[in-house]
Design a protein around this nucleic acid. Structure first.
Lengths: 330, 330
DNA sequence: TTGTAAGCGTTATCAG
DNA sequence: CTGATAACGCTTACAA
């Protein structure tokens, strides 16, 4: 592997000039040409690690998500990588698989690797592990006024879902959602639901469980028996698309027709690919915009490390996406 | 940021000893303790870039895929990251979006970043850009005997799909597949189909197009009109699940029943998540095994750079996954 | 077992 | 505009 020294020697200039050449600092045309020639000849490539050591910037950002094997996060990651690339920043990916131990370890490793910043979707309390001096953006989970935070407008989304259920003909509503031990912003979806219902005097039931996946599913099964089979509920707002699909499957097995007997609206709207058509009516999060904003905020704070104490808090609007699990509007 | 020097000073030992401490080289218990204490006190973290500069290994690997926003690649990436992590290797992710310019640029950047190796799913001819000295594993695309190569056993998969179509009751078969300007191994799926048909004297039609997505879809539309509506074909092997879904949608619009009028088998079997149930009958690629083998080969060649000229070529077996687009076996 | 010091490939300061 | 040289934080002979 050739180094700057080799280039300098061949071009008969000093290493300093070669360095300047690569950093776009003015040089005499003649030296520039000589360097260019030498670089080509030796097939020289700057060593970014040496540079990073020197200037203390690595142009690398870490992304921590529960699992890339999930349409929402894979869409999000796609856009984040794309945005980062515009700034010539590389993306290191970590799947935490919802383990707080992993999350903490990733953050430690990120510090060691001297990455320039972290974007994370984490559902544990990692407040204390993120260093004050390392730029950080949290997506979808607000845990402290001391961090930058980007998420969908979950509260409005909750209201919107509720409103749509009514507009499309439902009378008695249910919210079905899986909570988390740690507070995250999806609780706002429930709050939106609650508020809209009480403001409009809508009969409603809430099926909420913050236990394990299994516990949650048992609770859902019971809820369906109690309220759906008995036709007490004719509209369901599910806190996520994934849960909506689970409910859908259950209903199918019970021969309950969707949307005739009960309408369902989910939340997320992530598509496995751009071309996939949507079956589930849902509140679509603007994943691309979440990515764009997160990167923007991160890059801003990287470039303005002086005043890192300013924290930004952004809510991205959501939209209703009509599918086949709601009736047409009359 | 504290450095080794700071730790050494506080612990009243030399930097050499601190370094040894971090590299697991035997030290007297007393010095070890002193260092440990100083590290804690200063909250010291080794600087991996300085280390990388010195030892010429960065424990970083680049993964290049067309798009993480695709269930197949997101599942693949999930497993690759997980495997890599077992070796304490970090994953840098690039989405090429099928652009050869991007692919070439990523490879150049990977060299600059002194990553230890590259795993790539690429559909362009990048042979000449991958340096002889940089460990490289190609997935799903074989382009030279000079690279390591991992893929599913596409040929056997093609045969298996064909056999299953027949076993489940189809008589007249079609292969529908989108080719690529650049040769990739999915052509083996077609070959498996062809061979099985001719060995068993099965009537078959091939709908193959290597143009743009639009051209391909037009061709499929025409093919359906000509062969499916007229009931000349009652079994379709689609080269990928994504295309199978496209075909399914078309058939639905034409009121052709699946699997009654025509059975369909896809290829891939990637799930958006572990829990998603499968609707499409398909040939399931063992994505996890592809990931495991790719990482294994890459790590092996990283650790045996001396004899990098040995190239490995692995084919992973596939299995039939029964869904609702094939009839039950009588 | 430990310390010393050279050197990895850059950048940046400062003279020229 | 260019060259020399001291860092950057670490590893690794080699010496003690």
């Amino acid at each position: 592997m050739p180094t700057m020294k080799d280039v300098a020697k061949l071009a008969e200039v000093s290493v300093g000039s070669v360095s300047k050449y690569f950093n776009g600092i003015a040089l005499k045309e003649k030296t520039k040409l000589a360097i260019e020639k030498a670089v080509k000849e030796l097939n020289y490539e700057p060593n970014i690690y040496a540079k990073g050591l020197k200037i203390n910037r690595t142009n690398t950002v870490v992304l921590i998500i529960p699992s890339i094997w999930n349409p929402f996060f894979s869409e999000l990651t796609f856009h984040i990588e794309k945005e980062l690339r515009k700034h010539e920043i590389k993306l290191i990916l970590y799947n935490s698989e919802n383990s707080i131990e992993n999350e903490i370890q990733f953050i430690t490793m990120s510090r060691q690797n001297k990455v320039d910043g972290i974007i994370a979707v984490t559902y544990s309390n990692i407040d204390k592990y993120i260093s004050e001096s390392l730029p950080f953006v949290s997506i979808d989970r607000f845990f402290s006024h001391k961090t930058n935070f980007v998420s969908s407008d979950n509260y409005s989304g909750g209201r919107l879902a509720t409103e749509m259920l009514i507009k499309h003909g439902s009378k008695n509503l249910a919210y079905i959602g899986h909570g988390s031990k740690y507070s995250n912003d999806t609780i706002s979806r429930l709050n939106g639901f609650k508020d809209y219902c009480s403001e409009h005097n809508i009969f409603n039931q809430i099926c909420y469980n913050a236990g394990t996946r299994e516990e949650f599913e048992t609770e859902v099964d019971n809820f369906i028996k109690k309220f759906i089979i008995t036709k007490k509920i004719d509209g369901i707002f599910s806190s996520t698309d994934a849960h909506a699909f689970y409910i859908l499957e259950k209903l199918e097995n019970l021969n309950i027709s969707v949307p005739e007997d009960v309408q369902i609206i989910g939340f997320d709207g992530a598509k496995s690919s751009k071309r996939e058509k949507n079956y589930l009516s849902t509140i679509r999060q603007d994943i691309e915009e979440i990515a764009v904003q997160s990167v923007k905020i991160l890059v801003d704070t990287i470039e303005n490390k002086e005043n890192m104490e300013n924290k930004t808090n952004v809510k991205i609007p959501v939209t209703f996406l009509s599918g086949k699990t709601t009736k047409p509007i009359l």
